[in-house]
């Protein structure tokens, strides 16, 4: 992200001062990865591949929900600073999503491409998970200032894709659990609140 910034003339014109908040959040967002690495490397996970898959998957969802919580947080509190973190949080959702997908492709399937195509076609939970990753990719690519300027008003329209991404992500979790829906329901409830809030605001504005 720093490199993207450097290439960006608008950002380069800003005074080169440390943004402690951003740095702190940047480091904080790496903690789940550090924790997972520690658990795996210390041998505490009996089934490391399953553990990494679960951990990166739930953190992808968590970061998606955190990102979606930024706007309501700003509207409720009046603070503007959370908005400055939104891009980074969204990119972290993509980052953990990439780790999740890589775990599946490499550690779980070991590059068995026909097997994976079969999975994507035949297993609905993989279909929706894969679709969510696909839809998230253009959002990550167009997250820079340059793309924002180039796409103008379409940028906002494009980035509404984050809603189907989050819905598909929760559905992916919902469909994969064997029986106990407690965890997926937790994510689904938070998402319902975050989307419900937006819907309410929209209706109120219309009224």
């Amino acid at each position: 992200m720093t490199t993207l910034r450097m290439k960006n003339p608008a950002a380069a014109r800003q005074p080169a001062r440390f943004n402690w908040l951003k740095i702190a959040v940047f480091v904080l967002c790496l903690l789940p990865l550090a924790r997972a690495a520690w658990i795996v490397l210390s041998g505490a996970a009996v089934n490391p591949v399953e553990f990494i898959t679960r951990s990166t998957g739930t953190w992808t969802l968590s970061f998606l929900l955190i990102t979606l919580a930024i706007s309501p947080l700003r509207q409720l509190s009046g603070w503007s600073w959370p908005l400055r973190l939104r891009r980074m949080l969204g990119l972290y959702a993509f980052f953990y999503g990439c780790l999740h997908l890589t775990t599946y492709v490499w550690l779980d399937q070991f590059f068995d491409w026909p097997g994976m195509l079969h999975d994507i076609a035949k297993r609905p939970f993989i279909t929706v998970g894969f679709a969510a990753m696909l839809l998230m990719t253009p959002l990550a690519i167009t997250s820079t200032q340059g793309w924002m300027r180039r796409l103008k008003r379409n940028w906002g329209k494009l980035h509404q894709l984050v809603y189907p991404v989050a819905l598909l992500g929760v559905l992916h979790y919902w469909w994969l659990v064997k029986k106990d829906l407690t965890q997926p329901m937790l994510y689904a409830s938070v998402l319902a609140v975050l989307l419900g809030w937006r819907l309410l605001r929209k209706l109120r504005h219309k009224a």
């Binding site: 009996v46 079969h118 939970f125």
Partner: peptide
């Protein structure tokens, strides 16, 4: 119905 049973991961082994 939701996953393949063609292979398995033996706990302690890397490849299925």
């Amino acid at each position: 119905p939701r996953w393949s049973q063609a292979s398995e991961r033996r706990i302690g082994e890397f490849l299925k």
